[in-house]
Amino acid sequence: MLSGKKIAANPELYFNPHIAAVPKYNAGLGLAAARAASGLEQIARLASNENPYGCSPGVQQVLSGSSVEPWRYSDPACQRLRMALGERLGVDPERIVVGNGSEEMIAAASRAFLSEGAEALTVAPCFGLHEIEPLAVGARVTKVPMTADFGFDVPALEAALARAPNAFFLPSPWNPVGAALDHEQLARVIAATPESTLFVLDEAYREFTSDAIPDGFEMLRESARSYVVLRTFSKAFGLAGLRVGYAICASVEIARMLSAAKTPFNVNAVAQAAAVAALDDQAWMQAAVARICAERERVAGELRALGLRVARSEGNFLFFSVGRSSAEVAAELLKAGVVVKPWVEAQYQAFIRVSIGAPIENDQFLAALAAILRPAAAGAA
């Protein structure tokens, strides 16, 4: 049995060694910190994959109204939201669990289905919490690297799944890379997943995908696998600050396990009401997504024109290599009032993930990046 470790400053105090060992989450820089660091007022916030167009007018009405009593506890079962989601998805609401962002569902899945010595499988580069949360409960994490052309290595995933890991965390679209599994690839991965493995398919960016990308939930529900599909209101619906995500589970039993592994009253009342309003306004969401996707293709083209290797993306972000320390380039961009996310994961420190913002933000980013790269190009010549 693992015992806690002593803290040098207080020999009587113990702490969980699994928590102490987890890597720090690579969060985007906030507005106040970016203004302080750059000395600029106009900041292009392109690090956290937020919706640059805000949220639906229906959500704004909820936020400015008086329908929520903040002195009352929120509904711990998120009944109204789960009913709305169940009706839209054609799923028994008892199989839906709502979280304080889908990241809480990642933590709940790790607590409910992993323990010390268990194995979690994911991809590299990975979404930080797909590694952090399994490590926090003492599991070991195996990562399958992306291919040279920024795609999923399906044969390597099949080989890793043959070892029957306890849980499989797979993002599609893939944060931070952008790739998404097509129908044939996803079918192969589902077929390779043992019945004893919990398949956690993270579809946080589902709304941004093209018609060529299948609905992972629809494919999984037709399989005999144990699965959890994660989705969120943070991205396409513009509710990142309110923190609402959800898990669609293969069975009521899995949903009960997730519910038991989260805290009660985990989603506040305002967030629940806002999510219902957002779900009711599909037209606003789809219009915002269309604008973001058009900008994504424009920005990708401009980056390639600068001679950069850019991954094809089905999300609201782009992943590209600058050929040198991404942290140094990100620091230079910050001086110009642009916040991006330099990737810090081993083997990928030359990569940057940039969110797609409004056109004016994207232009600010492209101009700043071109100015940074120009001296390097001149020196090479």
Results as ranks from 00 to 15, higher is better:
A250C: 12
P173T: 00
K262V: 04
F113Q: 05
A371F: 03
S325G: 11
R80T: 03
A109K: 00
S3D: 15
P165I: 05
G178C: 13
L198E: 08
G128H: 03
Q347M: 12
A367D: 09
R163W: 04
N268D: 13
R291N: 03
L121I: 15
V244E: 05
P134D: 15
A77M: 12
S115I: 09
F265R: 08
E295I: 00
S223K: 01
F265Q: 07
A84Q: 07
A247S: 14
V59N: 05
V340G: 11
Y348D: 11
A327V: 06
Q60F: 01
E314V: 02
S172L: 01
A32R: 11
A180D: 07
T209L: 03
G379F: 00
P359H: 04
S355I: 04
V229L: 02
G379V: 04
L85A: 13
A21R: 00
A287W: 03
R80C: 12
S67P: 05
L369G: 07
L230A: 02
D281Y: 05
R231S: 10
C249A: 03
V354D: 12
G30L: 00
F152K: 15
R312T: 14
L373G: 03
M105H: 02
P23I: 00
Q286K: 05
A124Q: 06
A37T: 08
A236V: 10
A156E: 09
T193V: 14
P155S: 08
G54R: 04
G4E: 10
V244T: 04
I96T: 01
D215K: 01
F127K: 10
R221L: 05
N49I: 11
R111F: 14
T197G: 08
L198P: 07
V276W: 01
L186T: 15
A277C: 05
A381G: 13
H130E: 15
E195L: 10
R256G: 12
E332N: 02
E158P: 09
E361F: 13
F127M: 13
G99H: 01
A191I: 12
A118Y: 13
Q364W: 12
L40A: 12
E119P: 06
P176M: 11
L366N: 05
L13Q: 03
V310E: 09
L318R: 00
A287E: 13
L63V: 07
V344Y: 07
A192T: 06
G323V: 04
S172M: 02
A148M: 08
C249F: 08
G238N: 06
I352N: 02
V322L: 09
L46I: 04
Q272T: 02
T147M: 14
A346P: 06
R163E: 12
Q364F: 13
F168C: 01
S66A: 08
T263Y: 15
S110M: 01
N16E: 00
L29G: 00
A212F: 09
D153F: 00
G90C: 06
R206L: 09
A156R: 13
